[in-house]
Design a protein around this nucleic acid. Structure first.
Length: 472
RNA sequence: CGGGAUGUAGCGCAGCUUGGCAGCGCGCCACGUUCGGGACGUGGAGGCCCCGGGUUCAAAUCCCGGCAUCCCGACCA
């Protein structure tokens, strides 16, 4: 009891309860170099399921996986002016190799537009080579000043998609298609309700024409960017001279896109679904979907094994916790902390009555179920949980989205967290004013009508509906 | 790079003011009793007190210098 942490969200800048869930669910820890992360087996097992699901969705759009180098010549980055200016402050630069000072420093990739576009220029000759749709799963390094475990780490693992198209319009369509892939993944697989929208100019990816984002709302009221999709227009094509011969025999620049999602999503799942008892995992990404906890060895354990076999036969990821040297309470709470969606507990008295206890992690409700039907009941519960977590997340976001028409009201309430929906004229100055002293930024520009006719900042004609929040 | 703090057992910390045997909780190991929501008892293992220098009979403790990490700002998937 003494060491039982209270995981109540603090509403602080970086809440202790989040760190507690990460640590006590044994998901990840900090590496030896500032800001690096170690993903522990349980966290990695979750990540693998997320990765497999995302990978399947990406490939379903016709994208192929490939792999590109970790080291990029500095000169590659310098080819795209905005790009290098955007990333320079957070580059890890290698100056020595093989005991010698390098003639040209190489950077550890912060993202791979430059090296991939360099190769695109070689690979693309004809309009028949287009579209070229590539994705890579890789680790990248950004020397962030303020790392946060899983949410912003110096090194992180992600997928980055890079595509080249014959026209700007096709690139735009690809950008939006991948945004939709992300949205569907976040909502259907992770159970996190997200807002999709475009980024403002100052939030845009360095080198992009247009940047789109999926923003989730975390339990502490802060927004988190969970995936981005960029239309890079002809910017990189010109810098890297990626041209093709069109059907009329004319040389044309391609239009490119890039889009990415990272291990940050693991942090997002914790922050969006975690509660005072630890992690709550959507069944689709739960390494164990059902854990069975027998109270005793012998007859009870054998009955549990039989239920487990039924579940396995049904394709349910099942685990039997036979750590009899630990108390029942410990075994039970362990899986709760780790977020396992459904538990089946069976004791000797229950066995006599022909019943087992079915426990769901989302609500923590327990119910007695006949042993004969408990495997089916557990399997059915998985679908219920998957939907319920999303419903919870959506309800939370709806409850914490406020329309404001007055700048003072916004300033007064922004610290309480949530999305603030408002009308905006689109001017950079006004965005600056919004952020001043509030620490908030425009998270998305949605496709909806502005909620008021005039900009909340300067009273000019409003052209955008924006969502503003504090963010990670 | 500015402001604040901290480095002591695997983890979390006390001890420092006022120098005098290296401590506590958790975890770990052994045995026993337990096991329906983070069990208990007994016995054990585990230390470059961040690093370097200085003061002193004596330094985790005082002084000087360094390094590292964390928190708060600016930057960011």
């Amino acid at each position: 009891m003494a060491n039982q942490a209270v995981l109540t969200p603090q509403g602080e800048d970086f809440p202790q309860w989040y760190q507690d869930v990460v640590a006590r669910a044994e998901l990840a820890e900090t590496g030896p170099v500032r800001g690096t992360m170690v993903v522990r087996p349980w966290g990695w097992a979750i990540w693998e399921l997320m990765q497999a699901d995302m990978d399947r969705r990406i490939k379903a759009t016709g994208v192929q996986n490939a792999y590109f180098p970790l080291f990029i010549p500095m000169s590659f980055l310098e080819k795209e002016k905005e790009h290098v200016e955007g990333f320079r402050p957070e580059l890890a630069v290698v100056t020595h190799g093989g005991g010698e000072k390098l003639a040209e420093p190489v950077v550890v990739r912060p993202t791979s537009e430059t090296v991939i576009n360099h190769l695109f220029a070689k690979w693309i000759q004809s309009h028949r080579d287009l579209p070229l749709l590539i994705n890579q799963w890789a680790n990248v390094v950004r020397w962030e000043l303020r790392p946060r475990i899983l949410l912003r780490t110096t090194e992180f693992l992600w997928q980055e998609g890079h595509t080249a198209h014959a026209t700007y319009e096709e690139a735009q369509a690809e950008t939006l298609q991948m945004l939709e892939v992300y949205r569907a993944f976040m909502e259907d697989t992770l159970g996190v309700a997200v807002v999709v929208g475009e980024k403002s100019e100052r939030e845009r990816f360095a080198g992009a024409d247009r940047t789109y984002t999926c923003e989730g709302l975390m339990r502490d009221g802060k927004a988190l960017q969970m995936g981005t999709s960029h239309n890079l227009g002809h910017n990189f094509a010109r810098s890297f001279d990626i041209q093709y011969l069109d059907a009329e025999g004319q040389r044309q620049y391609v239009a490119t896109t890039s889009w990415g999602s990272s291990t940050r999503m693991l942090g997002a799942v914790i922050m969006a679904h975690g509660d005072d008892h630890g992690l709550r995992l959507p069944p689709l990404i739960a390494p164990h979907q059902v854990v069975l906890v027998p109270l005793a060895e012998g007859e009870v354990a054998r009955a549990v094994d039989k239920i487990a076999a039924e579940l396995v036969a049904d394709g349910v990821r099942t685990h039997v916790d036979s750590r009899f040297h630990l108390s029942f309470g410990r075994r039970s709470v362990d899986w709760e902390l780790r977020g396992v969606p459904v538990r089946i507990e069976l004791g000797p008295r229950e066995l006599e009555r022909g019943q087992a206890t079915l426990v769901r992690r989302d609500t923590r409700d327990k119910s007695p179920v006949p042993i004969d039907g408990v495997a089916n009941a557990a399997r059915d519960l998985l679908d219920v949980l998957q939907r319920n977590l999303h419903a919870d997340s959506l309800a939370f976001r709806t409850d914490h989205t406020y329309t404001v028409t007055d700048l003072e009201e916004f300033r007064r309430r922004i610290d309480d967290g949530g999305f603030f929906r408002m009308a905006w004229c689109g001017k950079d100055d006004c965005e600056g004013v919004l952020g001043e002293g509030t620490g908030a930024s425009i998270r998305t520009i949605t496709a909806e009508e502005p909620p008021a006719p005039t900009c909340v900042v300067d009273g000019a004609q409003a052209v955008h509906d924006i969502l503003v929040a504090k963010a990670y």
